[in-house]
C-alpha cells in the first residue's frame, strides 16, 4: 500500500476509534465537561452509526427488574388485564426480552423524571404511547398503566425460605390512567 494511502487511512482509523471510545465515554447523563464536549464534536457520526452505547451490562449493579401491568377497559365495561414481559405469551425468548426491555425502558425514563429537575415529558410521552397501543389492541375506552418493581431477595431471605416470586418482593406505582379522548 502506498504511504499516502496509509496516512489517509490512518487518519480515518483514528477518527473512527475516537468515535467508538466517545460513544460510551461521552454518553449523557454520565458525561463530563470534557467527554461531553468531544462527543458533541463527533455526535453526527456516532449517532448515524449507532455507536452511542454505554455498554453498561448489569451496571452499576444487577438491580430489581421491572414489569408493566395494565388494565384496559372496553366501552361495555370488560376489563383486559395483562402484564409484560410475560413468559407465557412472549416466545421465543428474544421476543420476551424485547417486551422486558420496554418495561425496563419506561422505568429508566421514570427514574430520570423523578430526579430533581428531571425531564418528565419523555416518560409521559412513552407511557401514553404504550397506552395508545393497548387501547387499540383491546379496543378500550380507558387504559391504566402501572410500573411493577420486582425486588431481588437477599441471600439471607432465600435461606429463610423466601421464594423469588414472594408477593412481598413486588412494589407497584401508577404511571397514569387515560381515556380514549386523552390519548
Amino acid at each position: 500500500m502506498r504511504p499516502r494511502w496509509q496516512i489517509i487511512l490512518s487518519i480515518l482509523i483514528c477518527l473512527h476509534v475516537a468515535a467508538v471510545f466517545l460513544g460510551p465515554w461521552g454518553m449523557a447523563p454520565y458525561d463530563s465537561a470534557l467527554s461531553g464536549l468531544l462527543e458533541r464534536a463527533m455526535h453526527p457520526y456516532i449517532r448515524a452509526l449507532s455507536l452511542d452505547n454505554g455498554y453498561r451490562f448489569f451496571a452499576p449493579e444487577p438491580g430489581p427488574s421491572h414489569l408493566v401491568r395494565y388494565v384496559a377497559t372496553s366501552s361495555d365495561g370488560t376489563e383486559h388485564e395483562g402484564i409484560f414481559p410475560n413468559r407465557d405469551t412472549h416466545w421465543p425468548r428474544l421476543l420476551y426480552h424485547r417486551h422486558f426491555m420496554l418495561a425496563e425502558f419506561v422505568n429508566t425514563l421514570d427514574t430520570f423524571a423523578e430526579a430533581p429537575d428531571g425531564p418528565s415529558h419523555i416518560r409521559d410521552a412513552c407511557v401514553k404511547s404504550y397506552a395508545r397501543h393497548l387501547a387499540a389492541q383491546h379496543d378500550a375506552d380507558k387504559v391504566a398503566i402501572y410500573l411493577r418493581r420486582h425486588l431481588i431477595p437477599l441471600p439471607q431471605q432465600v435461606l429463610e425460605g423466601t421464594r423469588l416470586d414472594d408477593s412481598r418482593l413486588y412494589e407497584e406505582k401508577s404511571l397514569g390512567e387515560f381515556t380514549r379522548e386523552e390519548l
Binding site: 448489569f58 449493579e61 444487577p62 438491580g63 430489581p64 427488574s65 414489569l67 414481559p85 422486558f100 420486582h150 431481588i152 431477595p153 441471600p155 432465600v158 423469588l164 416470586d165
Partner: peptide, 12 residues
C-alpha cells in the same frame, strides 16, 4: 454479591 442479583432475578 452482584452475581447473586442476577441469579435471583426471576425475570432473567
Amino acid at each position: 454479591t452482584a452475581l447473586w442479583g442476577a441469579i435471583a432475578n426471576l425475570e432473567y
